[in-house]
Amino acid sequence: QGDIVVALYPYDGIHPDDLSFKKGEKMKVLEEHGEWWKAKSLLTKKEGFIPSNYVAKLN
């Protein structure tokens, strides 16, 4: 089961498979690959890669 993270900063995706998000948006982490994680937005239901240093895990 994936962790839920919250965006600390907004992110505008650079690549087509990036997931753009707004500050405060919550996402479910699907896979962790070093600095880039695959996640699904709980708001938009879209999936893509996010920079892990832009988010914090919720406990």
Score class of each variant (00 low, 15 high):
Pro10Glu: 11
Trp36Asn: 06
Gly24Val: 00
Leu58Pro: 07
Asp12Tyr: 13
Trp37His: 08
Gly34Val: 05
Val6Cys: 09
Lys46Leu: 11
Leu43Asp: 10
Ser20Trp: 05
Ile50Cys: 03
Pro16Ala: 10
Asp18Lys: 09
Lys22Phe: 07
Lys45Arg: 12
Gly24Thr: 02
Asn59Tyr: 11
Gly24Ile: 00
Leu43Ile: 10
Lys38Gln: 07
Tyr54Val: 04
Tyr54Glu: 02
Tyr54Gln: 05
Val29Met: 06
Met27Thr: 00
Gly2Trp: 13
Met27Phe: 12
Tyr11Met: 03
Asn59Leu: 12
Lys28Trp: 15
Ile50Thr: 00
Tyr11Pro: 01
Pro10Arg: 13
Trp36Asp: 02
Trp36Tyr: 11
Lys28Val: 15
Phe49Asn: 11
Asp3Glu: 12
Leu30Tyr: 07
Thr44Phe: 03
His33Arg: 11
Gly48Tyr: 02
Glu32Cys: 14
Lys45Ala: 13
Ser41Gly: 02
Leu42Gly: 01
Met27Lys: 00
Asn53Gly: 11
Gly2Lys: 09
Ile14Lys: 12
Glu35Trp: 14
Pro16Met: 08
Asp3Phe: 15
Ala39Gln: 00
His15Ser: 10
Lys23Asp: 04
Asp18Phe: 14
Asn59His: 13
Lys28Gln: 14
Lys45His: 15
Leu8Ile: 09
Val55Met: 05
Lys22Asn: 08
Ser20Tyr: 04
Pro16Cys: 11
Lys46Ile: 07
Glu25Asn: 02
Lys40Glu: 09
Gly13Pro: 07
Gly24Gln: 03
Asn59Arg: 10
Leu8Thr: 04
Lys28Pro: 00
Ile14Met: 11
Met27Asn: 00
Lys23Cys: 11
Asp12Asn: 13
Pro10Thr: 14
Asp12Leu: 12
Val55Glu: 01
Lys46Gln: 11
Lys22Ile: 13
Tyr9Ser: 06
Glu35Lys: 13
Val55Gly: 02
Ala56Arg: 14
Gly34Tyr: 05
Ala39Cys: 13
Pro51Gln: 03
Leu43Ala: 10
Lys23Gln: 10
Gly24Asp: 06
Tyr54Phe: 11
Met27Arg: 00
Ser41Tyr: 02
Ala56Cys: 15
Gly24Glu: 04
Glu31Arg: 07
Glu25Gly: 01
Tyr9Trp: 12
Asp17Lys: 11
